[in-house]
Design a binder for these strands. Structure first.
Lengths: 151, 151
DNA sequence: ATTTAATTAGTAAAGATTACTATCTAGGAA
DNA sequence: TTCCTAGATAGTAATCTTTACTAATTAAAT
């Protein structure tokens, strides 16, 4: 049984309700992907979700898991983390700064903030290991994507 | 000519000095990758750097650009941004929280911070578009990677 | 100039994600 | 309930990104 059945079922309800509200079909496969996500406390990749769901739905395809996760993320029911856009990118600017990232086109803009830089690193973070740096990421829609539809 | 020749040459010097200090060979190809990075103000992907350098070094291979960028990033002379590890991951936890990310193994841990959440979103960020959320990412080495060498 | 270990070009391989098509099914209507 | 249909899935292929490999080249120390 899951470690926190109440938490888990609460999360599951949140996800399935979200799918219903969106008016998409609540298929067996999507339900099991939601169940998998609800019973997890880390940040699984597609492979991990696929593996977990496959134990209960042996015929599910990887593509279905990809589409279910993309759907949930697009509906704002789960978050994307790690690789946002496909390719890795590099930042030649090594002076302290932060990023605005467009959730749609992936455009990144730098900004600085004395207020942010003054915040001490939370103690909780030190408990996880040795801290190198703290950086703020602001997600949103850039002006291009906010107005015109051009790529 | 570049928009800010002084800035640009300053960045170039920082990169090439870093390579010399690391004791690696300062090849023509690496120099041109540095030059490309120094003349840029955004966050280029490998393709963009490859394209830019190729205009001046038509025979350079994509692999060389990958390796030059990885070298610079490993030496801490440039930053990696966007896709850190290979695969995309998902976060079922939609309550406000922040992330500790291990630079080596990619492990992610959640933490909350009232201090961080109280910071107003910097005005500079609003100028770039419509803000959805602000999230802190702390990079470092997790306990596993800090001590043992196990994957 | 010679030597050597590091680096590169070119290509192949691996890995991750997306696309495609025939088949199937959730959910509404009869 | 049964029928119908738009939407979803399984299985696989294709695409895209990144890494690996090898023979040839080259920086830089001697």
């Amino acid at each position: 049984m899951p470690p926190f059945p109440d938490e888990s079922s609460h999360h599951l309800k949140r996800l399935t309700d979200g799918l219903k509200r969106a008016g998409v079909k609540l298929t067996h496969q999507r339900l099991e992907v939601c169940r998998e996500l609800a019973g997890v406390t880390d940040h699984p990749d597609v492979e991990a979700v696929f593996h977990g769901v496959r134990a209960r739905v042996p015929t599910i395809s990887l593509d279905t898991v990809y589409r279910a996760l993309a759907l949930l993320a697009d509906l704002g029911l789960i978050g994307r983390v790690g690789a946002l856009q496909g390719r890795m990118r590099f930042d030649p600017n090594m002076t302290p700064h932060h990023h605005f990232v467009c959730a749609r086109c992936g455009a990144m803009h730098d900004f600085t903030s004395a207020a942010v830089d003054q915040i001490p690193i939370p103690d909780d973070a030190h408990a996880f290991g040795h801290v190198h740096a703290m950086q703020v990421e602001i997600r949103g829609l850039c002006r291009r994507c906010q107005f015109g539809q051009e790529s």
